[in-house]
Structures are given as structure tokens and as C-alpha cells.
Computed example of a mutant assay.
Amino acid sequence: MLLAITLAVGAPALAAAGDGPTRGTVSGAIRLLTPDASLGEANVEVLAFPQGGEVSAVAETVTSTGRYELQLDIELNTSYFVLVTYEDIQYLSNPLVLSPDAPTVSADFEVYATTATAPELRIETTTVTLLAIDRERAELTFIREDAIALDEPLIYVGAEDGITLRLPVPENTTDAGGMEADDEDYRFDGGTVAVATPLRPGVTSVVTRYTVRYEADKDEYRLRITAPVNTDRMAIRVPQRFLREVRPVGDDATLGADEAFESGSGSEPLTVIERTSPATPGQGLIADLRGLSGIERNSHPLTSGAGAVVGALLALLVVSGAAVGLQRIRGRTA
């Protein structure tokens, strides 16, 4: 969420200049969308982001009525946001414009009740992309992105341990987790990555990374990705210049249409392996990655030539999946 706020602060949402501080009013309504549940206490804060300064909470209140109204001094060159925390889940408003000429603004919120009881989850798509090869260490780096669908009007926060999903890891995984090494919402426990990200109604994107070892003398690696819940579509993507061959394994795997990652510095063709049918828990997709010594033995896939384009794919995935685990002020955000 912090990234989202930082980007928004750059937008024209600043308090207009004036002769001095003017009192402003921020008000709004909070509506609970979970049927058969009653709205409890919600904490409401107005956050101020001054240009070149530190974020601060300039007003705070607790409400159980569904309405709030906060008074504050309008500061110059400052962006404002309303942050609502309900059942430990945070909801952030769009940037608010407060000025001496427009000292009143409203921001309404729709919130959901949370549950520790596991609902029926479904993964719309699982996509695993080979991001890098370290031939000196005989290691591969994969990025996995799961689009997790929750059709109930509530937020699943896991049981006492807060785990909402466990993703089986590929064979010979030596390290795994979230996109940030110290992200406590993703924990590698040997056989799975335990995900503690709250799952919202609709689709939540969960992005995880994996480092696996392969046998350099065999010059190949068999990649298996496994569905933790019912999964509609599974795909493996490999930059064509990384390997000599990518081959589907089994009757439920096939070559898909080639894709390409485009950036300002060029295009990186990707070989795609797809599962031919939806997967049930425990089923998956298998592909043999052959010729790991590389087509271009003297190049590093993240630092040279078109490989730098694939390196940029990491940034793309971080941005697309950032709403899951990277963009937060504190706590857990929906």
C-alpha cells in the first residue's frame, strides 16, 4: 500500500496554497457488505503526506455507527488519504483534495467481515516463469503468480496462525518466499510456501519466488507445479534463449502458443507449456527443461542482451502482484 500511496502523492492531489492553516472536515460512511453480519467498531484515520516530509496521522476516531467526521488543519502542499481499519483489515481511500476554498470532502467505504474458517477457494490461473539461471551455482529462479478467486462476501484471514494458503514447492527448492526476502507473510517451511495474505472477495494475486538446484552434469531439470486447490488454468513460461528445449511431460501437458514479453529495450520470446484441463488439488503441470548450460554460454540472463528484458519481468510481476504483499502501510491491507 505504501507504493500505491507514493505513486498517488505524485498526482495533483495537493492542498492549495493560502494565507495559513484552515480547518477542514473529512466525513463519510462505512458500509458492511457481508450478509447476516453487524458492523462493529472501525478505526478511521486521516493520513497527511506533505511534500518532502513524513507521513502522519492528523486525525483519528473509532466508530460503530457507520459514519465518521473528522476535523483537521489543512496544511499546504499536502496530500490526504483516509485509512479505515476494520477487523484488522485496512482500506485506503483515493487521494483527497483539501484546500481553503474546498475545506470539506467525503470518502465512503465498503468493508467485509473476516473469517478464520476456510472458504471454498479456486485458482483461476497459475503461471510459473523461469526468471534466471545461475550456471555457476546450478540454480534456477522461478516466479509463481496465482490468481485466487473467493466468491463469498468476506475476507479469509486464516486460523490462529494466519495461514490462508499453502503452495507446494518444486523439487529441490532451497529457498522460497515472497518478493521481498523479509516478508513475513510468506514462509518457506520445506515442502510448501505458507502464505499469510488475507484473501478478499473477487480475485487476489499471490506472487511467490523459488530458488531450485539442478544437477549440472545432467544439464536438465524437471519442473512440476502443483495445484493446492481446484485450478482452472496452469502454465509454465520459459525464455527461449535460456534453454535448448522445453518439453511437456504427460498427457495433460501440451505446448501452448508462444508469448513474448515486450519492453522498451526489445522483445523476449517465451515458450509456453499449458495444462490441457483444470487441475484438482495435488494435480499439476510438468515440463522438462533441457540444455541448462545455455544457448549463449557466456551471457547472464539478467544482465546481457535480450536477457535484460526478462530481468524487467521481475519488476512487472512486482507491480502486478504488489497489492498482495508489497504495498502496505502497516498490518494487512485490502
Rank of each mutant, 00 (worst) to 15 (best):
A132S: 15
A132W: 15
I133G: 03
D134M: 06
R135I: 04
R137A: 12
A138R: 00
L140F: 12
I143R: 02
R144F: 12
E145A: 07
A147T: 00
A149L: 11
D151N: 07
D151R: 09
Y156T: 02
Y156Q: 08
Y156W: 08
G158N: 09
G158P: 11
A159W: 09
I163E: 13
T164W: 03
L165C: 04
R166P: 05
R166G: 10
R166V: 04
L167R: 07
L167C: 02
L167I: 15
L167N: 07
P168T: 04
P168L: 02
P168A: 04
E171N: 08
E171R: 10
D175C: 00
D175N: 04
A176C: 08
A176Q: 04
A176M: 07
G178H: 10
E180I: 14
A181K: 15
D182K: 10
D185Y: 11
D189M: 01
G190V: 10
A196K: 11
T197I: 15
P198S: 09
P198D: 07
P198V: 08
L199W: 10
R200V: 08
G202Y: 06
G202V: 09
T204R: 13
S205D: 06
V207E: 07
V207A: 13
T211Q: 02
R213C: 06
Y214P: 01
E215H: 05
A216S: 05
D217L: 03
D219H: 02
E220F: 05
Y221C: 00
Y221W: 08
R224W: 13
T226V: 14
A227H: 05
P228T: 11
T231M: 12
T231F: 13
D232E: 14
R233P: 05
A235S: 14
A235H: 05
I236S: 00
R237W: 08
V238P: 07
V238F: 07
Q240I: 14
Q240N: 09
R241H: 11
L243V: 13
L243P: 14
L243E: 06
L243R: 08
L243Q: 06
R244I: 13
R244Q: 14
R244H: 15
